[in-house]
Design a protein around this nucleic acid. Sequence first.
DNA 1: CTGAAAGCGCTTACAG
DNA 2: CTGAAAGCGCTTACAG
Lengths: 367, 367
Amino acid sequence: MPKLTIRDIAQLAGLSKSTVSLVLNNSPKVDPDTRDRVLEVMRSHNYTPSTAATALAKGRTPFIGMIVPGLTWHMVAAVNWGVASVIEQSPYEIILYTSTNEKDYSSLVERIRASGLSAGLLVVTHDQSLDPLEKLHRAGLPVALVNTLGTPSTLPSVQADNYEGTRTALRHLAELGHVRIACVQGLMAYECCQERYRGYLDGLAEAGIDPDPELTVEGSFHPPTIRERVTELLARRDRPTAIVAQNDNTAYAVMQAVIDCGLRVPQDVSVVGFDDIASSADTHPPLTTVRQPFPEMGKAAARLLLEAIDGATGDAGPVRMSTSLIVRESTARAAKKPYRRARPPAVGPDTTPRTWSGLGPNVSRNS
Amino acid sequence: MPKLTIRDIAQLAGLSKSTVSLVLNNSPKVDPDTRDRVLEVMRSHNYTPSTAATALAKGRTPFIGMIVPGLTWHMVAAVNWGVASVIEQSPYEIILYTSTNEKDYSSLVERIRASGLSAGLLVVTHDQSLDPLEKLHRAGLPVALVNTLGTPSTLPSVQADNYEGTRTALRHLAELGHVRIACVQGLMAYECCQERYRGYLDGLAEAGIDPDPELTVEGSFHPPTIRERVTELLARRDRPTAIVAQNDNTAYAVMQAVIDCGLRVPQDVSVVGFDDIASSADTHPPLTTVRQPFPEMGKAAARLLLEAIDGATGDAGPVRMSTSLIVRESTARAAKKPYRRARPPAVGPDTTPRTWSGLGPNVSRNS
DNA sequence: CTGAAAGCGCTTACAG
DNA sequence: CTGAAAGCGCTTACAG
């Protein structure tokens, strides 16, 4: 069956195309009775106007472009979900673009611009220059960012409150009696990591703890490197009783290091992460962490974009979304001194069968 | 600056719109020299034809609809990535639809049909009826499925080779000397789980092992229930030395249960999962599992759809993608008898501080 | 090989 | 309140 056109509907209703178009566009000028009649004809014939024709005639498009990093993160899926849930309620559809690397990225942005297909662009940023987007925005295309790394920008954007999130984690640890609290950084080139570090420092100060520079561990993308550094940290006589990691994946490496040293999480060392990616509920023990509200961030960015498209340009700087501390089992009261002795870690690749921990004879069993 | 139209280009090149249109559509009828001239004008003025106008004139659309389950799985992100990477190379763009529940789902499909926006539909299925899609397909819209649950269907689709995957896992365990091998099922209502179970049974048979019905554990979506059932299993005198779980999340619960019983993975019990979701590399110990090639599944489905749109209707039944066994640290040689004694698990909610394992005094430390 | 004309399915002033 | 007409930016026979 060939698709019906506005001409068919007009004919069936005994009216002109113009009138049908008016009811399509909710014009108040059309008589209520004829409107109902037209609506009924459309409904009964399952009519939907052609998107292409409408777009051409109106000179605008019902699409929102969405660029996501070409990575298989939990984060991307979670943000997507949030974005989809609000766009769904709007007259727009989402066109999905994936950008894998920096090079493709600026040509992708150019392609999007040139196509003129998108009424606005929602970008889940990653480690990329924001210049192409700023240019696009200045050229008049509405843009909104889910700014995952806190990259400075004048574009409308949403990001987690990295500073407050970390402060909350510090407060939690202080309440548990921890005083020697270490921080394993992420990549300090990113603003979000700088903000989290400020949160660490200020959280310490609020708890009346003098920061010990020795307790700050430089981050790495390479988990074995993190493990190595944390192992060194734990070998100190005055080792920390708690470690805040600047993201969950780092926290995993930290937990590994604790085990490698023959210590226990959380009895000997409490560990806190940041992000709350899906797997953090399934680590052993489940990770206490600062949750980034990814779906809400997606929703907020989508709303921002929709507003910008509607011309409500409230350029109020980045929206900061509150994080929440998810207390699971990787944090506990600070151990009283004397500390359990850390075991010198094995040297070189570990070829002996891996034990789950290095518990000694005097370990209390919970049975 | 107002967007250039084909008329502008024609004028700039001193030609008619018709000719410009012909070069736009790669017609061989146009003189090579004039073609080059037109191309140059377009390039230098950064011209791109209006998608809406083209779609309207040609009567077809450059969009592929993609329905993904409204879930924040690793899987969805991984499949997306694969789909995007092949669609990117085609003239199509992806319109992203998210379906959260069954009810929305069929109305979503209807909306997609009515809009006529999509030249084809790529669906990442979940727990849903395939009827609306079959109908759509019969009505002439190309459809391709990433069939995550192996739901029977005549639609072009791709799915993991669940049967072979599990057989491979069994072979791995048999080679490690395991004989008492248990299976913790998923939800047997799903075909994929039935296929995996057949793989388990046949894998057992090929290793010359008689299946023991007592070693089949019914699945559950509720991890605590799984833990409970596995705890019972491990309390048996003739407990298994290896457990295959029908998916990674189940494997996590199984590993927990092993620890709850005071046993070790993999020294006392080897554990194998299925899926290889991202977190499985980070469990403790890292999980040996059967990897579903999600990105490749996405790519294959995208190719299938593109072919169907081009009219190459090779209705050859579902494409089965090979899995691969990822051997990590949750599997090891079968322990020799006598077995280490399982500890009776604590009753009721575990309020004592969680230890990492229940290792006794005679545990070898690897230092 | 190139151009004039009609048409794709809508919208939007403009008359009435 | 309704209709006739022109136009959105392309494509596609049809002439030449």
